[in-house]
């Protein structure tokens, strides 16, 4: 099934209906495994002690905050270039989920920073660029709600999303370009992770769990968005029928 086959909302809804149970079960299983590894298997850090367990939330949430925005940026291209009817449905559905993950990433980072750095917040390049990402999400959600017509809203949001996409490399490389309090990358690096396997495994399982969670919620939110557009179309039909809005032929 090519992406274009999914242009038909009804076909997408039936695919989502079939996929959701499986992805949901896989997501729950991954979380059970991840949390077990986090609390019962992963060793404490020799410096941070048990506080390192916050990493198993903070890092996946940060990755997902950027994965969500990347999904929206790809959807924006789908809207503007290929005019794929479900592209802006995907982008609109992903925005609140991305905002939630970014919020979790900021909060858990702050709760990790207080005991480790001695402060909840510092205007560090990494923290500040992630805060900008969070504000971008809120701005996009507001933009969607401002324009009544979903097609026009989709185009406007797509342009803003692509403009904001410049923030993703800034977040990723902020720890290399500037002298930051936030540590440099320790997993996604050119010369491989610097984390020991006993900590890398639980982190990978939690990242998988968060990714599956995003997939589940994104499918469900896209389903809602398609239903919302159907309701809007039917309501327009009903209103035009009630007010006897004649079609041109009928008027002659």
């Amino acid at each position: 099934m090519a992406i274009l086959d999914l242009a038909n909302p009804t076909r997408f809804l039936s695919l989502a209906q079939r996929l959701l149970p499986w992805v949901s079960v896989a997501c729950v299983a991954a979380f059970v495994a991840g949390l077990y590894l986090t609390f019962f298997v992963a060793p404490d850090d020799y410096q941070q002690g048990a506080t390192v367990k916050i990493m198993y939330l903070h890092v996946p949430a940060a990755w997902l905050s950027m994965l969500c925005y990347s999904t929206m940026a790809l959807s924006a291209l789908g809207t503007l270039i290929w005019k794929h009817p479900l592209a802006d449905v995907s982008a609109k559905a992903a925005a609140p989920i991305g905002a939630a993950f970014t919020f979790v990433s900021l909060i858990t980072g702050s709760l990790w920073g207080k005991p480790m750095w001695g402060t909840y917040w510092v205007w560090d390049a990494r923290l500040t660029s992630v805060l900008v990402l969070f504000i971008m999400y809120l701005g996009l959600i507001a933009l969607w709600r401002t324009i009544e017509d979903p097609i026009r809203a989709g185009k406007a949001a797509a342009v803003l999303t692509l403009v904001g996409a410049i923030n993703l490399p800034i977040i990723k490389f902020s720890v290399d370009w500037w002298n930051t309090l936030h540590q440099p990358a320790s997993v996604i690096r050119m010369d491989g992770p610097t984390i020991h396997a006993s900590i890398l495994w639980p982190l990978s399982v939690m990242a998988l769990a968060f990714t599956l969670l995003f997939l589940v919620m994104h499918l469900m939110a896209m389903r809602n968005e398609i239903l919302r557009r159907r309701v809007r179309t039917l309501q327009l039909h009903a209103a035009s029928a009630r007010h006897g809005v004649a079609t041109p032929q009928a008027a002659e």
Partner: peptide
Amino acid sequence: LGPHAGFILASFGIT
């Protein structure tokens, strides 16, 4: 969970 258990539990709770 060590001396910072509160921060750890708060993180998991808020998430």
